[in-house]
Write a protein that binds this DNA or RNA. Sequence first.
DNA 1: GATTATAAACATTCATGGATGTATGTAAAA
DNA 2: TTTTACATACATCCATGAATGTTTATAATC
Lengths: 208, 208
Amino acid sequence: MVRKTKEEAEQTRKELIQAARRVFHQCGVSRSTLEKIAKAAGVTRGAVYWHFKDKAALFFAMREDVFVPMVERTDALLFSEQFTNPLDAIEASIKEFFRVLEDCSVVREVFEIMISRCEYVDEFASVQEDVARPAQTFLAKIEGVYQQAAAKGMLRPGLSPLDAARDTWAFTSGVLHLMLACQKGSDLPQRIPDMISAHMAMRRCVAP
Amino acid sequence: MVRKTKEEAEQTRKELIQAARRVFHQCGVSRSTLEKIAKAAGVTRGAVYWHFKDKAALFFAMREDVFVPMVERTDALLFSEQFTNPLDAIEASIKEFFRVLEDCSVVREVFEIMISRCEYVDEFASVQEDVARPAQTFLAKIEGVYQQAAAKGMLRPGLSPLDAARDTWAFTSGVLHLMLACQKGSDLPQRIPDMISAHMAMRRCVAP
DNA sequence: GATTATAAACATTCATGGATGTATGTAAAA
DNA sequence: TTTTACATACATCCATGAATGTTTATAATC
């Protein structure tokens, strides 16, 4: 029983990516053998090598699946016209990011793999750049939005858009890493929305 | 030629740790074979197994060497009596942390290994807790110092010590990760002191 | 102070067990 | 009939850990 239909083949490809995620998450990337992944997907290594050049290619495919939609979602809020105050757009965007991370275990697993279960050397050195790039563009984006807030007089006086942006940039990265590194019993995830609110409150104009 | 003197043996132990750091940093922990490390130290695997139980033990020894002094240095500033304003103590402590990280390549390499060249599964799962613990205690420490600042009326009105502490906590973690993930050409390291100043300025009382 | 026994500080060898990549087989879809 | 979508089989390489060998510092003994 071989030679499936095109749709079935695409299905096994997807199942291989799911299996890879589970195995990567459990064993770490380097200790994840293609044999384990194949078995977890209910196929043999032959199938893996048919769909992917090697383990790195599988990893990239898995990553791409969740990374792109994530950026789209948060950007949609960041640049949304529905907020009269640009600071609200930033707050909503960051909150949405962590909401997805909290609610969707698939996304969370992929982020956990990328942050604490993969060694960024050799073939995977480029992955670190792929992760750093969105972070860089995120900085540029929120700096622009902070400038809009400043132009509207909605940014706290004495605070420059660039300083505010860099601080938010570091804050977001920090929350992400602390959240993914925190052990199971921690109540950090629940507190994240409040932390984001408090963070943004520091750059809002004081109530009259 | 074997059976060195006690001092010579201690020396090879230290050289094994240095070699492990170089090899871990270059190859990642999982691809660092004890053969490579031994050769880099000018000995054979026999020497490695004599001094360390296995690769994980070598890793822990390497980590301990730089982690403990780092905490001592920053705590000394954080709890120093030389600052009349507690916020200055926090600022000095965090700046010192990143100054060491920037100036001392040994420390930086170890942090880079722990953050982006090690997979936190199985024997190394505990490492992640070891890294998370100082972060947790750091949060508790700066919350205390922020409370002192509030008691002295030096914390910006409307800002709670706990919110300030959590925000600084995330900020510090974020800067650390962004700094270690940034590619060679980036000028982020130079800007870190200014980012810290700007971060702390947001929680100081406005000048009269 | 010289001798000797002990064990420290490694080097060398061996046995074992994977993991990878490729090559080949195969049955059904196109 | 050809090609797809795998499964199976094969060859190679390498990492680990333990076992054993070797030399010499060191301390106990005489």
